[in-house]
Design a protein around this nucleic acid. Structure first.
Lengths: 209, 209
DNA sequence: GATAAAATCAAACATTTGTTTAATTTGAGT
DNA sequence: ACTCAAATTAAACAAATGTTTGATTTTATC
């Protein structure tokens, strides 16, 4: 199904509200009000509130999927360099789509809607297979260690990044960075997070610190 | 406030349902039905559905809090050993209270209820400070590196463990472990997860792999 | 500019929600 | 056995929910 401007407007308004209040606590009246459309338009366009959620997942996952694919096909980058880029691109994506990643996390926890579950499983499988290939490539070239658990490694990347996102205010508070301007703080945190995850991957994948 | 057996019965039934369906999607009728009490008992005992959620957090966080404290006071363990135990105890806790950790994750994402937010901030701060002391101790003894970002490190532990929990079925599928009995699989996974997180901590905290 | 399909709207729909009420039962303490 | 407070109940409550209706407006095609 192809979405027009109004579809997107509703979808992205819903995204904001789902991220802020949770899917169940968000009413179609909230969405209609903030998206400035009549309440009936949501059923008219999407069929139901739940189908709107599915539409959101289709909308966002479609654009996210492509990211990994193209990077790994590149033949001019070393496996180590590819891993670094993979990490940075993931962090960028999560920061750029904070709201969606929050919704995705909660949906994975609740694990109810079969359409969404299948979408997520498919993406995870594809990503895990691609990263597996990348690691195998590095192993053949002798730069990566043997016996790497891909799913554990992915869990660390995904888990660390989303956890830092959730703990962002706490991070700022605990490290006495409250005076720092928001912009500056976010840049700093992103750099630290990037370096942190890369260091972990290096430790798991290679033989040097 | 002290809870009697009936309180606990309701709280832990609510926990199961909140974890399975999410807080908002769980009705007080669900809870009353499954806990085998009249629906009015929930308001009568707790005041409201939301206060019941807060009671759940008080109930669980109270017992969890103590874990870290006592370990770090122990004077007969090296900093390195303490970190290992810290990790294993955390993994044990998350596995033993899967449901509650899922609820906690979602509540952190939604970030709405001020009572719960404050409870969680307080716990995080206390934990971060304790772990900070442990790391400082290790640094003074020369076994840990300088410039360790405690919050990042905690985010990796918390994030990795909860992510593995969420991805458990996928982990099993991707690694072709579907024939393995559930019990055996969970043991295996717990051991791998433990080794994985310990390896990461070692890489961040010390100079050897 | 007539026509038909798509979009928009206010209103109504039946359910379900959390909470309260008011009556009844239970269970010690005397 | 009596008393009184706590516990328990079925029923009712108003408010809010997602969805649908049927009429009206807009838009595009001829």
């Amino acid at each position: 199904m192809a979405y027009n401007d109004k579809h997107i407007q509703i979808i992205e308004t819903a995204e904001q509200l789902f991220a802020k209040k949770g899917y169940e606590a968000t009413t179609v009246r909230d969405i209609a009000g903030q998206a400035d459309v009549n309440i009936a338009m949501i059923s008219y366009y999407f069929g139901s509130k739940e189908k709107l959620l599915e539409a959101l997942f289709n909308h966002r996952l479609g654009s996210i999927k492509m990211g990994v694919e193209s990077l790994l096909k590149n033949d001019f980058l070393s496996p180590g360099k590819k891993v670094d880029i993979l990490i940075d691109e993931h962090i960028e994506r999560v920061i750029h789509h904070k709201g969606f990643y929050k919704i995705m996390l909660c949906e994975q926890v609740i694990n109810k809607n079969p359409v969404i579950i299948n979408l997520l499983i498919e993406i995870k499988k594809r990503n895990a297979e691609l990263i597996n290939k990348l690691i195998n490539d590095g192993q053949k070239k002798g730069v990566f260690k043997k016996n790497v658990d891909v799913v554990l490694l992915m869990s660390t990347m995904l888990g660390t990044v989303i956890q830092v996102l959730i703990n962002q205010p706490f991070y700022r508070d605990f490290n006495n960075l409250k005076k720092m301007p928001a912009k500056k703080f976010e840049e700093t945190m992103q750099k630290k997070l990037s370096a942190h995850v890369k260091k972990i991957f290096k430790a798991i994948l290679t033989n040097e610190g």
